[in-house]
């Protein structure tokens, strides 16, 4: 049944974006023709539009999945969605997977768009495929350029890409399902907005506390000597390690707490004499905890739906 729910979602997404994809394709083609052939003014114009379109692709996909979640569960369409012979969990995870597939496919399209934009630019600059290859190689090798293991570097990118989606889904599903619950449903779409504002304030407070007091930090040391000697290798300049220390201790030692809280200190003050700074990682644990709580809570909300 989960696969059928996902199919239902994909069918709806397809109905919504069936015009967007050919339009984007035409835009990329026009960029190749105008920018690639260096057509004055028009080349820059289409290139600019295509860059903006490519940048907004992923946010648009996330927004579409948010609207879809609201419509499928809390408008007239909810009367169908909530009376299908499936469990609330299947309903919820169906939406999660459907939205992820949309995000995944949009990411592929965005990557393809970026490649076309780079190609158009290099064609326009008369560096052709050789220039295109150079740019792509330079992008692919970014982890090595900052002294990171390439596998680890790209794994971090993948983790960030995945985290953005999961966190966004957890946030909007939590806000919509809580905001459309019995107590707040009289505010219509204002309910989810109220929940989001409250959630944001709570997250900021807990996030700050976790950042300062949770005993898990990324310790950053910057070698001022390496900088002064003109070294540009990130590995020489920056040293990192995970420590189980509360970041507030170092802030306190540096005199950044109390009256000076929030004030910037010069790098020399922080990093001189093997100095370091601890970046609190507790905030990520708070986000992870929120994702888990959101999944459990929202699934329960869907089991006690209240469509007024």
């Amino acid at each position: 049944m989960l696969s059928k729910l996902i199919k239902l979602d994909l069918r709806d997404y397809r109905a919504k974006v069936k015009w967007a994809l050919p339009i984007y394709g035409l835009l990329l083609l026009s960029v190749l023709l105008t920018k690639g052939l260096s057509v004055p003014y028009l080349g820059g114009f289409t290139y600019g539009i295509a860059v903006v379109a490519t940048i907004i692709l992923l946010p648009a996909a996330l927004l579409l999945s948010l609207i879809h979640y609201y419509r499928h569960f809390y408008t007239n369409q909810g009367y169908l969605t909530h009376t299908l012979p499936v469990t609330p969990g299947q309903r919820y995870y169906g939406k999660l997977v459907g939205a992820f597939l949309l995000y995944f496919l949009t990411s592929l399209i965005a990557i393809f768009g970026v490649l076309i934009l780079v190609l158009a630019k290099t064609l326009g600059e008369r560096t052709g495929l050789a220039g295109f290859g150079t740019i792509i190689r330079s992008v692919v090798s970014w982890p090595q350029q900052i002294g990171l293991n390439p596998v680890l570097g790209w794994l971090l990118v993948f983790a960030l890409w995945l985290f953005i989606f999961i966190y966004f889904f957890a946030t909007y599903s939590f806000c919509i399902s809580s905001g459309m619950s019995r107590r707040l449903s009289r505010f219509s779409f204002g309910g989810p907005i109220i929940v989001y504002i409250i959630l944001y304030i709570i997250q900021q407070i807990i996030g700050l506390l976790a950042f300062l007091f949770f005993p898990l930090s990324l310790r950053l040391s910057v070698s001022l000597d390496a900088i002064n000697s003109g070294s540009t290798a990130v590995g020489d300049v920056l040293k990192t390690r995970i420590v189980t220390t509360m970041p507030i201790r170092r802030f306190h030692d540096l005199g950044m707490m109390g009256e000076n809280f929030g004030q910037d200190l010069p790098a020399e003050t922080i990093f001189a004499n093997n100095g370091y700074i601890d970046i609190g990682l507790g905030i990520f644990l708070v986000m992870l905890a929120f994702i888990i709580i959101s999944f459990i809570w929202t699934r329960r909300r869907l089991a006690r739906i209240d469509l007024r």
Binding site: R11, D12, A15, N76, Q77, L80, T83, P85
Partner: peptide, 26 residues
């Protein structure tokens, strides 16, 4: 239960063929 709500509950963008497909699936 086969339920007909007061207002239409199908996505207005769907064709009848797609709507039938949903019922066949579920």
């Amino acid at each position: 239960i086969s339920y007909l709500p007061e207002n239409t509950y199908l996505n207005p963008a769907l064709t009848m063929q797609e709507a039938v497909r949903i019922f066949v699936d579920f």
